[in-house]
Every structure is written in C-alpha cells, then in structure tokens.
Amino acid sequence: MKVPSNQDLVDFVLHETRLIDTHRLDEWLDLFADDGIYWMPLEWGQTDPRLTASLMHEDKLLLKVRVERLKGNRTFSQKPKSRCHHVLQTPQVDKRDEAANRYVTWTPMHYVETRLDQQDLYAAWATHTLAVIDGTLKIKLKRVDIVNCDAAFGNIQLFM
C-alpha cells in the first residue's frame, strides 16, 4: 500500500479496536509506529502533553511495559483479568495529506471495562493520526478524549 483509501483507514481503526477487545495486544502494539504515542488527555481540549498532566501519554516502550505486565504472574490487579468492549461509530476521515503521509480519523465511541462484578462505561472520541510505513498503515498518534476526562475515576486498566 502506498496511498490508503478512506475505506483502508476505516478498516484499520475497526481492526485496531478488535485487537484490543480480543486481547491480541502484541499484535496491537505492532500497529504503532516506532515513535507512535498513545495519549489520553486529562484536560478538556488539552493541547499540551508536556507541561499539563495527562491520564496517559505513552511511547511504545511504556505501552510494551503495560502489555507485558498484563501477562505477568504477579500482576495482582489483573487476577482475575479485566475485559473490555468497544462500540464505535463509523470512523470519519478528517484529513488526508498524501504528500506528508498523514491521515487523521475521528471516531466517537463507548467503551466498557469490566472486572469481577464491576462494569464501567466511558464515552470518548478517538482521534487516530496514521501514516503508511513500509507499505502498511501505522499509528503515529492515538488520542483518546474521554467526555468526562476530568472526573475522578477508579481503575482504568486496559486500552480505550
């Protein structure tokens, strides 16, 4: 693939979600570019990830720590494991910049995370910034804006 069609971009986002919901997290990690970032802002409309706190702002190394931790024998908060489920609106392609190899999609979603008898529902918008690298689409930035990003939450243990 050199230039992705809009359908390619939509399919990518749907596939990414499916990997999370089915716990195929090593494959999910491979969707990120080497310098890819997963960002979950703390502030409504946040623009600065550096001098403003975020819930998550993780490079591939930190994401790998999370994925490896979830497999661990002494990961006490994941005994038993959490499960998750996404309901997405159809992703919308907001920007296509073929010259800069930069494609942006916007996806409203509901995300459910469960563990034992607890079920938590979050409403959020996912913004994917994608690029074609070595012939495949990769995530440069996945930004997840939770609608009530500044509320007091309990544990959020998986990935939205």
Partner: peptide, 22 residues
C-alpha cells in the same frame, strides 16, 4: 514531576492499580 504523577498516581497508573487492589 508530571511524568511521575502520571505513571504513579493516575487512575490509569499500573503502580496505582496494584496498590488499590491491595
């Protein structure tokens, strides 16, 4: 300081998760 706070004290912190479990 913000990196520390995010990694250790956020509801999304893998350190916080295990403390809260205890």
């Amino acid at each position: 300081t913000l990196v520390y706070n995010r990694l250790i004290n956020a509801p999304t912190s893998v350190v916080g998760h295990d403390d809260l479990e205890m």
